[in-house]
Nucleic acid binder design. Sequence first.
RNA 1: GGCUCUCUAGCUCAAUGGUAGAGCAGUUGACUCUUAAUCAAUUGGUUUCGGGUUCGAGUCCCGAGGGAGCCA
Length: 500
Amino acid sequence: MSETPPDISHDQHAVRRQKLAELRATGHDPFRASFTPTHFSGDALKLHVDGQDNAVTVAVAGRLVTIRDMGKSQFVKILDQHGQIQLYIKKDVVGEEAYAAFKKLDLGDFIGARGTLFKTKTGEVTVRVEANGVTLVTKALRPLPEKWHGLADPEQVYRQRYLDLIVNTESRARLMLRPKIVSHIRHLLEARQFIEVETPMLQNVAGGAAARPFTTRHNALGTDFLLRISLELYLKRMLVGGYDRVFEIGRNFRNEGISRKHNPEFTMLEVYQAYSDYRGMMALVRDLLQSLVREVIRPADGSLKIKHAASGEDIEFGGAWREVSYKELIHAATGDADWFVRSKAEKIAGAEKLGLGVDPKWEEFEITNEIFSKQIEPTLIQPTFVTHLPKELCPLAKLTLEDPTTIDVFELVIGGMEVAPAYSEQNDPDAQRAMFEAQAGGDQQSIDHDFLLALEHGMPPAGGMGIGIDRLCILLTGAESIRDVILFPQLRPGGAKAEG
RNA sequence: GGCUCUCUAGCUCAAUGGUAGAGCAGUUGACUCUUAAUCAAUUGGUUUCGGGUUCGAGUCCCGAGGGAGCCA
């Protein structure tokens, strides 16, 4: 027994495991302890009345994130769903043995604490822990990242998001905002008598958008399915079925690149309203976004302005929003009022004059749209309804009566990003079939014949709109990347740092 | 998929091709109102991995892997 134990003081994992072993040896299993808090931290803090210290007793629980040890007393902070609350532990209050046990706690441990609320000299409402007031409810066997700089390595932030949420206050605030945004959207739509539905993610034909789908296999049916790339065609079946106002908030999957604006799985809101049209959708989306800024984001100055991270410009959500046709924007960008009657060769020359590389194999509308997406869209920082896109860009909308080369749609652009497209929905089954066939180019398999059958049964005239929830959250939270508003963004597998 | 950048202690970061360091965290001690608490001492490294050049490589070269940005 004369052997000196090996020095493990450098190995925080080993030190914590040893503490766990000691606790168990003395009959305290920190994974079997129970504690029932009476309040979340934020609610508890509100209970303190100025000038009435120690009048209210609360029980709070959370993760130990700060320890300030002053010998015979300590200030510590715990973190729960609401945020942090400070605890004050005095040796002469809790007793020698309990105080010694408390000193063995580590940052990251989950504890429960019971005590009375008081205000410290510096004005922070704090729980004065009472005798037998502390319970260790879970031992953390791994150390937390550094307290001041937090977790900065982007890879670890995404792979171990839980650590990011514990130590990076801004990440936590931003990600907590997202459920509030989604909830607010739901409530607003429900208040307007929209019905929320759930439609299939496993589909035979991935329709409603142009994107490469993921494929998966159903064993019992012995058949492949595609993961949906859009919600559109099933929600329209609901219009056929007599649901006049429907929406769905759900995951779409697109088997394409990953970037600051793209995650392979992302969340869409789609809304369909019978007897409305794209102009009705304009009012709806503006109401929705203004309400979100007013009620959820609540800019401090009482305005409806949000800072745009990429440009530094303030985005003004209040008031009426700019409305401009696609053709007007193209005319202005090219300086050519006759752009749309120019030959393909002239369009190629025009695009190249703007510094854009174009593939001669492209269709004319693709050349024009390259100008829109590269030269125009990124400059539209303030909310802008771009209306009447060329009909080739979407086969699911009604043609404009006065100009059958365009469709009755808008694309809402904010912060240089497409946020919400909306259409007067095509409900003529023959026109719809013709558009599908033209687009499929003989590939009958890519046509959703079941949807066309539904249309033949009759779909009421309707306006429809989609909002990319992730992009909306980027805008509303001032984030720089889609990865900052998705809890667990897609990364290459297996890269997590190996831990002993 | 292409180009550029990046990977060093648990975390945040240093280190002309020449002995791998600091702060926080950890460990030991002091301190009964702290706010990145303070003070003293102290442990801790296969520098992402595999090759190469060199008397000598964290640093230069090649390859692999992860991540970031731009492009497609």
